[in-house]
Design a protein around this nucleic acid. Structure first.
Length: 340
DNA sequence: AATCGGTGCAACCGCATCAAG
DNA sequence: ACTTGATGCGGTTGCACCGAT
């Protein structure tokens, strides 16, 4: 896809000049990482049907050979290896579904986004036939807007808070802000978050992905960041999938201490009514009447945010979310969420 | 009919991580 | 232990399309 460079040199020229300069300097360190391909000689932009056919036929016959970089040369495609990989994974693979997300899939995406954030590949692993790119696009273009309410009002709210000197929240990334808002919505005492019986439940009829033999299902994915270990366990061969976020706090003195305070989403969907409420601004205890973060005169973000002062990062070490039932704060970072 | 703005989505980019030597 | 290249991932871009004006 030809990108405009906003007055800068064309990308291939930048690449040429950069590499020539560095080569001439003989400074391999300054050279940094070599590009995966010669960008001047690779085609970019939309794939033609011929290119698709070549790539698909080759991979179906020989596989990737474990080397995407070398693949385009073998096939005779003037494409970057990464581009080939992306095309295959997001489009050419068999059993890929595009569009037409079901309510159940909406539920899963929402549940997981709220609990683990923008780990699209992990979320995609819960949705057979869906790609991370598809889910990401779907979230960014549709689901997010549904859940977070009207953008204009939100930006108006942001402006108001900017005027009020709410610097702390300004430091948040968009993703963190979105999750903060979602968390706040779910922290509402009327929300399902405080009613375990309403937590995402498994409907065996809807969740038996065994039927899809080629389903891409993650199994026991663990990922570690800092001192946290999070586990996403998906049991294939069983109708129940468990997605658990468990923190194994590292005790500096005595090794690992397990903290089972993590949120378990046994299953992955809201009920239709709940989803309706969340996605369609229904009755809605989740959003204020004006969709502006307030419920009547009461802001749904806690006043304590303001009290926390500037530089307050609700997802960091001070990652608190007000726990309305306990009347105190819940440290989400301490129960295994990476709130970066 | 032309223009404009919003939306959806394919594809690219850069960084982080992994793995082999 | 370190270096280097490949892979994976999330964020972002830009084009095509469509409806409103």
């Amino acid at each position: 896809m030809a990108k405009e460079n906003n007055g800068k040199l064309p990308q291939f020229m930048e690449f040429f000049l950069k590499t020539r300069k560095l080569r001439n300097s003989g400074d391999s360190q300054a050279m940094g990482r070599a590009p995966c391909c010669d960008k001047a000689n690779v085609k970019k932009g939309p794939w033609s049907p011929e290119e698709d056919a070549k790539l698909k036929a080759y991979i179906e016959k020989y596989g990737t050979g474990g080397n995407w970089i070398a693949l385009p040369q073998k096939i005779g495609l003037k494409r970057c290896g990464k581009s080939c990989r992306l095309r295959w994974l997001n489009y050419l693979r068999s059993n890929i579904k595009h569009g037409g997300f079901t309510e159940e899939e909406d539920n899963i995406i929402c549940s997981l986004y709220i609990s683990i954030g923008s780990r699209w590949s992990i979320i995609a692993a819960q949705l057979p036939g869906r790609t991370d790119n598809d889910i990401k696009n779907y979230w960014n273009t549709k689901l997010k807007k549904k859940l977070l309410g009207r953008r204009k009002q939100a930006s108006a709210r942001q402006e108001t808070r900017d005027v009020n000197g709410d610097d702390g929240l300004q430091n948040l990334s968009n993703s963190a802000m979105e999750r903060l808002q979602l968390h706040m919505q779910l922290q509402n005492p009327f929300s399902l978050f405080h009613n375990p019986s309403l937590w995402p439940k498994l409907n065996p009829q809807n969740h038996n992905h065994n039927q899809d033999q080629d389903a891409l299902v993650a199994s026991d994915q663990n990922y570690i960041k800092g001192d946290e270990v999070r586990e996403i366990s998906c049991v294939k061969g069983d109708e129940v999938r468990e997605i658990s976020c468990v923190n194994h706090n590292q005790d500096q003195g005595s090794g690992l201490v397990e903290n089972n305070g993590g949120m378990h989403l046994n299953g992955s969907g809201f009920t239709n009514a709940e989803l309706d409420d969340l996605l369609n601004d229904g009755s809605s205890s989740f959003l204020g009447e004006e969709g502006d973060g307030s419920k009547g005169n009461q802001a749904w973000w806690p006043n304590e945010f303001d009290a926390a002062g500037s530089g307050f990062n609700p997802w960091g070490s001070a990652g608190f979310v007000h726990d309305q039932t306990a009347g105190n704060f819940q440290d989400y970072s301490a129960i295994g969420y990476n709130m970066d």
